[in-house]
Design a protein around this nucleic acid. Structure first.
Lengths: 204, 204
DNA sequence: GGGCGGTCTATGCTTCCGGATAGGTGGCCT
DNA sequence: AGGCCACCTATCCGGAAGCATAGACCGCCC
């Protein structure tokens, strides 16, 4: 089974190909960008399965996916990504990708997924496709109440306690209370730190 | 040699650990977030080398790095990242990380790097540290002087004027001056707003 | 030399923040 | 009913932040 793996992270593609190479009958070729993948496909193709990283150089979304499918003579082309959302996954599967492999999936599933895709089936890890259904929620956000979130938004906008109180129809002291609670819950040393942490964690 | 690898991408940590596991004398433990890493270190530590992904859940920049170094009793702690810039690399090395491993490095170098770091040396791939010299300078950053940038970093860390003054060997009043100037240049209404703007613009 | 910008410091003042303490209300659950 | 929790308010205090004004040093450029 001839497989082509395209990923710009050399460390990742090396170790994955080493991992797959131990499987009997698997021959893994690796490249670091889309141009390299296209080149390999035209010269050595078609492959039984081509895996393209969604964020690699030269990779241009669905357009590149379609082009790869042409170059591979219709044989399966799957997408692999470390950051893409479920929406992207649905999009690429809709567009005819052989599968979507988030880098958060376990390695032992990878072999099965690859054989599955090479056999012409469409693959996507169930856990990934379902878990993010309605839970892009931040674990930290769950610990904050509605009021605290409103005050936090004021903090991030750099407003004073008084201003926040006015916009939320609260007394300044009450805002102070929420700010103190926020600092405790976010493990921040003061309002500025809390705002920064909120920004970093994407608590908006 | 006991190694702890913390990365939120299961596929990546599985294949890397499988790759390293073939090396004689290497025992690789893996976890998926910072909390897991902290737990392992307290219960099974110290490790000869701990590798932390820069973007994993619970990972909070230099703060987490420092905490990990404590938990590992001073034994080497390195940073691994797929996206971080050269600036981040320099920052973590400055902060005492055992090394910086971009995921774009070849796997064959990984083993050498690990043995190097476990031996107490500091490692970073030369190619990565030199090639990215071309920095897309922020237009706003050009308007800030060196001192102002230093103070700004203090702001983003949520430190008080007094603390910033101590770390930079300045009087508190002087820090206040720089903060005021920063607010004017960044068009911020106060220190918190300035810190947020700096974060959004990536002025670090 | 003179001007200018970056840097540092000082004094004095008002306002705001952070923290402690002490309550009060209403909703929800057992 | 009692307990818990989110939520709101009040008062007090020390310290920090923010602002203005003023003076000084240095390096650089015209």
């Amino acid at each position: 089974m001839k497989i082509l793996l395209a990923d710009d992270h050399e460390l990742v593609r090396d170790t994955i190909s080493a991992f797959l190479g131990r499987e009997p009958g698997m021959q893994v070729s690796v490249v670091g960008d889309f141009a390299g993948a296209a080149d390999r496909m035209t010269r050595e193709g078609p492959f039984d399965l081509v895996l393209l990283d969604w964020g690699m150089p030269g990779m241009n979304g669905l357009e590149s996916l379609a082009r790869a499918r042409e170059l591979n003579f219709g044989s399966p082309v799957g997408i692999i990504s470390g950051t893409a959302s479920r929406a992207v996954a649905e999009q690429v599967l809709e567009a005819g990708a052989a599968g979507f492999l988030p880098k958060s999936m376990p390695a032992r599933s990878l072999v099965h997924a690859i054989r599955f895709m090479a056999a012409g089936e469409q693959y996507a890890p169930i856990s990934f496709m379902t878990e993010k259904e309605e839970e892009p929620e931040n674990p930290l956000a769950a610990r904050l109440t509605k009021r605290e979130m409103e005050v936090l938004r004021g903090l991030v906008d750099g407003r004073s306690n008084k201003e926040i109180g006015l916009s939320l129809d609260l007394q300044e002291v009450t805002v102070k209370l929420h700010v103190k609670t926020l600092c405790r819950k976010l493990d921040a040393r003061n309002r500025t730190h809390a705002a920064i942490i909120a920004k970093e964690q994407g608590l908006l």
